[in-house]
Computed example of a mutant assay.
Amino acid sequence: MLIQKACRQDYKWIYQLYCASFPLAERKPFSRICRNCRNGRMEMWVIKENTAFLGFFVCAVYEEMVLIDYFAVIPSKRGKGVGGDALKLLSEVYPDYSIFLEIEPENEKAQNALQRVRRKNFYLRCGFQETGIKW
């Protein structure tokens, strides 16, 4: 498995997974993400196995910090170690950077309560730490 900077040919796959993985209310216009990548404000990475598309990252990089703005793995590869391996590869791309992300707070009344717990536990297993910052 590898991650590499996304090129135009990857955008179709990224866009499809982006729309399938994130609710409309959480999505920025994809054209803005692409423009920010062209302008150097963001970076888009694809996760691949040989030539097969497995997922993507959209990151904002500033000084020694990397915000993972979006991260998704294709449904057939979820729960099979692809996400954790991809995060390790991303940390190798940015070895001297602090990598962080946002997740929804746990809320047992939320429609996706179990998903929120699973997502948080996944990131904790991957070495992320809670900041205590809540919105």
Rank of each mutant, 00 (worst) to 15 (best):
R38A: 14
E104V: 09
I68N: 06
E92H: 14
F56D: 01
W13Y: 13
F56E: 01
Y18D: 07
K88G: 03
G55V: 05
L67R: 11
E106H: 06
R78L: 05
E104M: 06
G132K: 05
P105D: 10
I74Y: 00
Y15P: 02
G79Q: 07
M1I: 07
K88L: 11
K120P: 09
I99T: 07
A20M: 09
F57C: 05
E49D: 14
Y70N: 08
F71R: 06
I74D: 01
E106C: 11
C7H: 07
P29Q: 09
R78E: 10
F22H: 01
N36S: 11
D85C: 12
F30M: 06
K5F: 02
F128C: 10
F56T: 03
E63S: 13
K28D: 12
R125W: 00
E130G: 13
Y123S: 07
A6Q: 01
G55S: 02
M1L: 11
D10W: 01
K77P: 00
Y18C: 06
F30V: 05
L114C: 07
E49P: 00
K109E: 11
G79T: 04
K134P: 00
V117M: 09
G132L: 05
A113C: 07
C19D: 08
K48Y: 07
C59H: 04
V46L: 00
G79L: 04
L87P: 02
E43N: 02
F57Q: 05
R116I: 06
P23R: 06
R116T: 08
K77W: 10
V66A: 04
F57K: 05
L54Q: 12
D96C: 13
L2F: 09
E108G: 11
Q129K: 15
D69Y: 05
E64M: 03
D96Y: 14
R78M: 10
V93F: 04
K80L: 14
L124R: 07
F71E: 05
S76F: 09
K77M: 12
F71P: 06
P95R: 07
F57Y: 09
C19I: 13
E106T: 10
S91M: 15
F128P: 11
L101N: 12
K12C: 01
V46C: 12
K134A: 11
P23Y: 04
K88W: 02
W45M: 02
W135V: 09
E64I: 00
G81Y: 06
Y15V: 04
D85L: 13
N39L: 15
K120R: 15
R41M: 08
M1H: 08
L90A: 11
L114F: 10
R125F: 01
R125D: 09
E108H: 10
F22M: 01
G79C: 01
S31K: 15
Q4E: 14
D10H: 12
A72M: 04
E108D: 14
P75D: 03
S98K: 14
G127C: 04
G79H: 08
M65T: 10
G83D: 04
L90K: 12
K80T: 14
Y70M: 05
I133D: 10
R41H: 12
W135P: 13
Y97T: 02
N121M: 09
Q111S: 13
V66T: 08
I14Y: 03
R116L: 07
G84P: 03
R8K: 13
K12T: 12
N107V: 01
A52R: 13
I133L: 15
